[in-house]
Amino acid sequence: MFIWFHKLVSPPYFYKFAGRLSPWLAWLSLLVILAGLYAGLWLAPPDYQQGDGFRIMYVHVPSAWMSLFVYTVMAMAAAIGLIWRMKLAHAVSAAAAPLGASFTFLALVTGSLWGKPMWGTYWVWDARLTSELILLFLYLGYMVLNRAFDDRRTGDRASAILALVGIVNIPIIHYSVKWWNTLHQGPTVFFGPRADIPPSMYIPLFIMVAGFMLYFAAFILKRLQVEILQRERNTAWVRELVEKS
């Protein structure tokens, strides 16, 4: 088991492993997302209050969850990279950041598109919107710092520290803006069935979350391949790989 793990985290082996796994995950995520969209946009009944407008939640809620999930992945990989000096862990953080930032951006955009008909405005300084916006800034800060150094390794370790400081701060930021101002509705979907939401409404949501997860897995592997090639560009195996193709 450990031997397998050691083999897996060696860059050349992981490059091939990611290359083989990524397309499968990508096609699977496309299928799951299409299924989730069909279930969410056609099969789910309209909301008694919001009509068809609520259907944007099938994109909005998964991307908001993913924005937090990806940050956690990023910070955990950063911690692993700092503690065990694992090269691949830093590459995971660096590859995750742009994906996380895109999910955050998507959550903000879909949220404000939904907010216009429902709240009558694109943007309010509500707690959840504000903390999501700050999360976007945290992602951007991480990405800027990661690329600011001439030496990638320094940038990796400096931005890893920033990611860890960020993850300690996220709960504090979240609760401070929550007490400061709240308009956003509370979380509706919680794990386990609820009487007032029919399964045809919440099951598509979980399908969409699964699809987004698969999408993330497929594309972080793809981005990792690129990161590995960039980081290992002076090694023999990369040269071999390039010359072969």
Binding site: G141, V144, L145, V165, I172
Partner: peptide
């Protein structure tokens, strides 16, 4: 760079 990194953390 410094304000860009730190300002989000100072919100609370």
């Amino acid at each position: 760079l410094l304000p860009v990194l730190i300002l989000p953390l100072t919100v609370p």
